[in-house]
């Protein structure tokens, strides 16, 4: 701030900056007091757990504690990959999220583009209100609804499936697990995910539409040449985030949808970590598996972001 007043040398600039900084600290001490508790939260519940990941490289036991337990190098990682289950888990996790991405990514965009064309306000508001709603329903409830609706005895969907000649007990069928998971997810979140694209569409310069109209563009051409380029940066950001979280597929829903019959497809890394860690109490192995998952994720996110920046000029940072 003060540095710009005279045209000073580098040394005096640095000196001045240090002085303002000290004055800031003294004058704004209350800001730092405010920070104490939240920073403590981040240290205790975010950064200490990150450091605790060190037990992935140790033979952790309660008696010796995290730092006292003997080192094990990459033993736990080797133990995990030596188990044939490992590749099933990785495949299940990847397939589930890729399917989710491929099916779930375009639908909110289509929904937003379609809603954007509608001029009847009541219809538009109704569609928006209704399709956002499932987002606020809990995972437990959504899975319960699935179980009830697809129940061969009670549910109306199993009747419908039977009518089309399909196996009516979908939830017991391992091959149907992914479809049930992905499409119920789309049912729950598509409306809400469309919001961000609606916002982007609202931000498009009106003069572009006028120009398109003067040129005699049809509605479809207008979507293709004005709407889509207009929301492209948003689409890219959302895409980076989804590709970057390909391995981070949530525990909550897969765990609830699991039953002994569909386990061959529904056991993913997150649910396996829970079972190994908390039910079998093999902390080191579970941590190794979890760490492997997080690292892959981080690498994917960084890679996608870099590629996207180079290709489209858009990135997260």
């Amino acid at each position: 701030m003060t540095a710009a007043v005279e045209a000073p040398t580098a040394a005096t600039v640095r000196e001045r900056r240090r002085k303002t900084r000290r004055r800031n600290l003294r004058r704004h001490w209350q800001l730092y007091v405010l920070l104490v508790l939240p920073v403590a939260y981040f240290v205790i519940f975010q950064y200490i757990p990150m450091a605790n990941n060190v037990i992935a490289f140790k033979d952790y036991n309660v008696v010796q504690g995290i730092w006292g337990s003997p080192w094990a190098g990459f033993d736990h990682f080797e133990r995990f990959f030596a188990n044939p289950v490992a590749w099933d888990l990785i495949r299940n996790t990847l397939m589930l999220s890729l399917y989710g991405f491929l099916a779930g990514f375009p639908i909110p965009i289509i929904l937003a583009l379609a809603l954007n064309e509608v001029r009847a306000r009541f219809f538009k508001r109704t569609v928006q209100m209704v399709t956002y709603a499932p987002h606020f329903i809990s995972t437990v409830i959504v899975v319960s609804m699935l179980i009830l609706i697809f129940s061969p005895r009670i549910g109306f969907m199993s009747d419908a499936l039977g009518f089309f000649g399909m196996d009516s007990n979908l939830l017991a069928d391992p091959d149907a697990f992914r479809s049930v998971y992905v499409w119920s997810d789309i049912w729950q979140t598509a409306g809400y995910s469309a919001i961000i694209y609606m916002a982007a569409l609202a931000g498009i310069d009106v003069s572009l539409y006028e120009a398109a109209r003067l040129d005699g563009a049809s509605r479809l051409q207008k979507i293709w040449h004005v709407d889509l380029p207009g929301i492209a940066p948003t689409v890219v950001v959302v895409m980076i985030l989804s590709v970057g979280s390909v391995m981070a597929i949530g525990f909550e829903k897969a765990f609830l949808l699991q039953n002994p019959l569909n386990l061959s497809q529904s056991e993913i890394i997150a649910t396996y970590t829970y079972k190994i860690g908390l039910l079998n109490a093999d902390f080191s192995l579970a941590t190794a598996v979890g760490l492997f998952n997080s690292v892959i994720n981080l690498v994917l996110l960084l890679a996608v972001n870099t590629v996207s920046k180079r290709v489209t000029g858009n990135g997260l940072w």
Binding site: F45, Q46, Y47, F251, T287, G290
Partner: peptide
């Protein structure tokens, strides 16, 4: 993020 078990330990 720290992950399930490391957070549980805290």
């Amino acid at each position: 993020s720290g992950g399930l078990i490391p957070t549980y330990m805290v």
